[in-house]
Design a protein around this nucleic acid. Structure first.
Lengths: 248, 248
DNA sequence: CGCGATTTGTGCACGCCTTCACAAGCGCCT
DNA sequence: AGGCGCTTGTGAAGGCGTGCACAAATCGCG
């Protein structure tokens, strides 16, 4: 470990201690560990071994140990990891103790569903504002939250100190919405609209394109079909399962 | 290119030629290239340079050239790539010329939206069946398609030769649904339910967890906050944009 | 009190992916 | 016909991430 310890605010009452810079790949896995840990906590487990947690999260145990070691890990050799403690650690690292405010732009087909998605609230996020450009949708109430006009975005975003915005508009308007979000001080964007967004370098963008996911699966279907075409017979479905996942 | 040419069915009427085994990372980017190419085709462009296409797809031009070179690329030095030809190539590789049949299980909040998502149909996929376990939802019609009971899954999947299934159920039932899909001969699954699915090794699974995406963004928010807390002042929003993206 | 069983934390090697830099190829202009 | 500028395709280097295998540490038991 080249990173010398800064001490995670040992006894101090200081707010933000030194921040470990985790590998991107590790960060992407932490939420999965967290979900598995919550599940374990509900079943009453006090501690987990790396082996057990790795299985629950669908990864290699060595990878899990290395990931956890990056955040100064609280594990006990011969015993395992304290579930409650690890949950707190990961939630702190991910910044989930802040109960972050999120706004959603575009209350169409997909946006409507996202506005009502229970999985957000249960995992540390509050959807505090909905926006749409269509006057017919403004005023509509979804899940107890009124849809506002997009012109109010900047004012509301500042008032509610929203740092994360979700774009669920048609592709054509996504860039304009992104610009508006950035102007409103939003520094993280989750984009469901196909296409590339251009934003300042201090803004983080993550993209989710549902069609792309299907296209990747389609490729593997194509590949599998062209393989079983040539060699022996079709394997008869391999009975039971080691699990497998394609990409990340 | 270590793979010697098998000839991509030069004049032959043969169905499936040898399949180039592309790196996973490349496969994941092909759909984005494809989308950018379609956009270019609509604007009437005949050819694109790697630089131009790379910009439209949000990647490095060298990476794009290497990606395209893997599939035996049809580019002309000094000119660029033929847009129409490249579209055909990528669609063939991704197996999109088959207009693949997809079924969707779980017509709840999210599933309802996915059933009506226009982006699927426009990019080579037909949603041909909807399933749900709730008798109250069976019979309901969404976008001209009736919801069937999940017990009919196996029969319908075989009839319609469905190879790709989408899971949009609550987490608790996702594994059971996955098992049913596998039993019905589905070999690719797109899973929106949180949690790890266990499937035979010949089945590909891709997971989309919306909360995880937000949690990753939350981490970067946390990081940015703890960085601007210590060093100089806050950068005043960087005016205009080089673009940036966090992960993939 | 010491020993063995167990599990974490990590040094190391390997492989994949990205990026640079440049030679090879193509078209156009003179 | 010849040369010049532009663009592709790719060899090589560097970085990142993964997985193995083992030393270090802790607990429980005799």
């Amino acid at each position: 470990m080249s990173q010398q310890r800064h001490g995670s605010t040992p006894g101090g009452a200081d707010g933000v201690p030194a921040f470990p810079d985790l590998p991107e790949a590790t960060i992407a896995r932490l939420p999965e560990y967290l979900r598995a840990l919550h599940h374990l906590a509900e079943t009453g487990a006090e501690t987990v071994s790396s082996e057990g947690l790795a299985a629950a999260a669908g990864v290699n145990s060595a990878k899990l140990r290395k990931d956890l070691s990056h955040l100064g890990s609280y594990g006990t050799r011969g015993v395992g990891y304290d579930v409650a403690l690890l949950i707190d650690q990961i939630e702190y690292i991910l910044g989930l103790d802040k109960n972050r405010a999120v706004c959603l732009v575009g209350v169409g087909n997909l946006g409507h569903a996202l506005a009502g998605y229970a999985g957000f609230a249960s995992r540390g996020f509050r959807v505090v504002a909905l926006f749409d450009a269509d006057p017919k949708k403004v005023g509509e109430e979804i899940n107890g939250l009124a849809v506002r006009h997009i012109d109010d975005l900047e004012r509301v975003a500042v008032e509610e100190s929203i740092a994360i915005g979700v774009i669920a508009t048609p592709p054509g308007t996504a860039q304009a919405v992104a610009d508006a979000l950035v102007a409103a001080g939003v520094t993280s964007i989750l984009n469901f609209a196909p296409g590339v967004l251009s934003v300042p370098s201090n803004v983080d963008v993550r993209k989710v394109d549902l069609a792309i996911e299907l296209q990747i699966l389609s490729f593997h279907e194509h590949r599998k079909a062209s393989l079983t075409a040539l060699p022996g017979g079709r394997a008869p479905a391999v009975a039971n399962g080691d699990q497998e996942a394609v990409g990340s």
